[in-house]
Amino acid sequence: MRRLEMQHPLTIVTILAAIGGISAVCMDPVLLSVSLIGGVLFYAVRHQGGRVAVYLTSAALFAVLALLNPLFSHNGKTVLFVVNNAPVTLEALLYGMVAACMIVAVLYWFRSLSELMTSDKWIALLSVISSKLALVLSLSLRYIPLFGQQIKRVRQAQKAVGLYKDENIMDRLRGGLRIMSTMITWVLENGIITADSMEARGYGSGRRTTYTVVRFRRSDALLLLLTALLTAATLAGLYGAGTVYYPSFSFAAWTPWRAAGYAAFCLLALLPTILEWTEAIKWRYWRSKI
């Protein structure tokens, strides 16, 4: 097994989407706590502890979201206190905390997804479906940074010959329009040369093949299978009676099925972190032998 980052893009997307997806549909306090712990751990392991600012932001977000619900929802039997003639209930607070847990957990998973899935991995994934579409995406992705750079350069160049003024809004608008019109020419002109270069290298000369640097290994197949099994077990175990929040809070009945579902999700949510850890341990072991 390798780190999740080194796996095939399909594996990365499947695992993270499965965890995020389950977290987004189950309003279960146990499951969501596990999901949040897994998400934070994975982030921390990949960033050597992570940044304090990230933790503080997510804690603040958690607090705001958790407190927002009892302010608007007044269901529930247990009144904690009364604000402006409106009761604040324990049940609504609990519900808010679980919902906040869900949102923060899903945000952590998505953060990892977007960090692991760089543009080239999305393209590799897309090329499985359509190689033409993947090529178009690859072509356009190249232009985004270039476009931004060029706008900045044009503005500087115009300014330094006294043709671009930015003293008031009208000036800026006029200057902006001038620059946009030249950017269109620039893109089209670029397009002609790129098209020449594509044709000179045989684009359109017949059937294309697709080459990617990512490889689908046996470990990818294993991980995909494992993810499918764990997802199925989780959903099966948690199907049916769930946690009740209103009018009073009660857990779902504790059955072996349910326990198995929780266990399966625990493994799933910790899988990315485990992959990361095993590699680190393996590496330390090998290094000690060298």
Partner: peptide, 8 residues
Amino acid sequence: ERQIVTDR
């Protein structure tokens, strides 16, 4: 710059 077709 402009002969390059792809992003990687």
